[in-house]
């Protein structure tokens, strides 16, 4: 079997059947379209979609709309569900870093947009994730104007604590957590930002107000509630931990009951 696989590799040819979700706009109904594509093992998943689009354009058809930009796993643009999994089968990997060697010749691959009421479809695989921006705008920052800062070393931060804050801050805002969650909950995204800022001494000043405002905004955007299924953590391309959700719960409860702040 290995020999067979090696042989295919050297040919660099995989024949794939794609079932791609096509939807003209949020107002239109969508449906799956089937396409055959030839790909090489070394292509990224998005390069394979480029091949499909080149083919569609050569047939004077409308190419599949999908979001992508940095293609190195950090901008968080790519947003598609591949065979039922946001960003596809490889753990801790964005779609743009997923390579075709994760698939086999003859595979049928279903490609769908992230689905959630708070992420309405714009076109094909493109969805509107501006709800995330509004959550950050509601309090995901430290209120400090440019020029007000004290010397960077005047605030010592324990290495582990800084590391924990960093782990939460690696969130790329892609929305895979929402897409993966059966409840379309944005708890992992929101809690990652709450954790990043509330863990640090600089962020402690506004910690109570931050968590109240951000959770309030998250609810208003129409995301679901957390059932502690942890599919978000499993599908997160940056493998952000659900420990952050527990921290946000804790901070939210204590901010509500233990401070004079309201959302």
């Amino acid at each position: 079997m290995l020999k067979e696989k090696l042989k295919k590799m050297s040919h660099g040819n995989m024949n794939l059947t794609l079932k791609v979700w096509r939807q003209k706009s949020g107002q239109h109904k969508g449906n799956f379209e089937t396409h055959k594509v030839q790909a090489s093992e070394h292509m990224s998943f998005l390069e394979m979609l480029d091949v499909l689009n080149e083919k569609l354009i050569s047939e004077r058809k409308t190419p599949v709309a999908f979001e992508h930009d940095c293609r190195e796993g950090i901008c968080g643009s790519c947003s598609m569900v591949i065979n039922g999994q946001p960003h596809g089968p490889q753990r801790g990997t964005t779609t743009c870093q997923l390579h075709m060697r994760q698939f086999n010749d003859g595979d049928v691959i279903a490609i769908e947009p992230f689905r959630a009421a708070a992420f309405p479809v714009i076109k094909d695989l493109v969805v509107d994730r501006s709800a995330f921006d509004r959550i950050i705008q509601s309090g995901g920052y430290i209120s400090v104007n440019t020029g007000q800062a004290v010397d960077g070393n005047s605030i010592p931060i324990e290495k582990d604590l800084s590391g924990q804050a960093f782990d939460a801050a690696t969130c790329i805002g892609c929305g895979a957590c929402v897409a993966a969650c059966p409840n379309a909950s944005a708890m992992l995204f929101t809690s990652a930002k709450v954790s990043h800022l509330n863990l640090l001494p600089q962020g402690k000043v506004e910690a109570a107000q931050r968590v109240l405002s951000m959770v309030n905004q998250m609810d208003e955007e129409g995301f679901g509630m957390c059932s502690n299924i942890t599919a978000c953590e499993a599908e997160c391309p940056k493998e952000i931990s659900v420990d952050n959700i527990a921290r946000m719960n804790r901070e939210y409860i204590s901010a509500t009951l233990g401070s004079n702040k309201t959302a």
């Binding site: 920052y141 430290i142 400090v144 440019t146 020029g147 007000q148 800062a149 004290v150 010397d151 960077g152 070393n153 605030i155 010592p156 931060i157 324990e158 290495k159 800084s162 590391g163 804050a165 960093f166 801050a169 990043h196 800022l197 640090l200 600089q202 962020g203």
Partner: peptide, 22 residues
Amino acid sequence: VSIIDQAVAQGVPLAREYGGLL
């Protein structure tokens, strides 16, 4: 020089030594 101070104040988790300094 000021950029680093500004970033730290904003909560950018720049790498730290064991003593807690940058």
